[in-house]
Write a protein that binds this DNA or RNA. Structure first.
Lengths: 123, 123
DNA sequence: ATTAATATTCTACATTTGTAGAATATATTC
DNA sequence: GAATATATTCTACAAATGTAGAATATTAAT
């Protein structure tokens, strides 16, 4: 089961807040904010799908993510990679660096990151 | 307007084939293949959405992509990046290298790619 | 306690998506 | 040309999604 676009957006707020009451989530949206009931519906669906949990304080719920962002994201990314790059992460990486316009600094940064990864592998 | 999951899959075959008749597309699917009408419906929707064009040969159509794969993909990716990484490609890159498990060779390859990009920037 | 604000549940409904049958048009083969 | 295979159009329908009103429960404020 997967999150839909708007569920994903809400999930993002939840990841950022780490835990949140309805109020907090509504605040997170920029204008025009969706109706409370809309958010409630989404939360219910997300809960049903197993992406969101909550703790009850009286009758009010404090929601929190049940999946962590990088986990979710990397699954996503792997799907994309599989779908578009015959499952080759390297092929994707190549595409990524040429198509995403990183600045010189970002590229240097990326290079360092890669080097660090290489070092790690060598241990 | 965006492609749905199964439209995307079909689009992938079309990108690979560059141009194709109904028959070719059906062949591209692995078992269990969808019904011809299913593919036809998808093609019609994709045509309506402006992602696919065709040339008529008599009454039969040879379909071809109207958007190119990297273009489509990079838009996609940018969406993801915007959505998950506050629009920072570098942040994404960092995530990517640590989460996607590239082999040592792939990392070296990636490093070269990045270096090449850096060189390009310097010109 | 009464009122006002909020949260939750239920219900609803238009769109989009996944999937394909029926009917029809066309092309191919014997 | 009759039979067969194939493509296209039309119609259909269930599930998922985006969105929210109505009703209700709960909490906070006066």
């Amino acid at each position: 089961m997967n999150l839909s676009k708007s569920e994903e957006q809400l999930m993002n707020y939840l990841w950022k807040l780490e835990k949140a009451f309805m109020r907090d989530l509504l605040e997170a949206f920029s204008e025009p904010k969706p109706a409370t009931t809309t958010v409630a519906t989404l939360l219910k669906r997300m809960t049903d799908k197993g992406f969101v949990g909550y703790k009850k304080y009286g009758s009010v719920r404090e929601y929190y993510p049940l999946v962590n962002k990088s986990e979710y994201f990397s699954k996503h990314l792997n799907g994309l990679i599989k779908n578009f790059f015959n499952n080759s992460a390297a092929q994707f990486a190549s595409f990524f660096t040429s198509e995403t316009n990183l600045t010189a600094e970002e590229l240097e940064e990326l290079k360092k990151i890669v080097e660090r990864q290489i070092q790690k592998k060598k241990l």
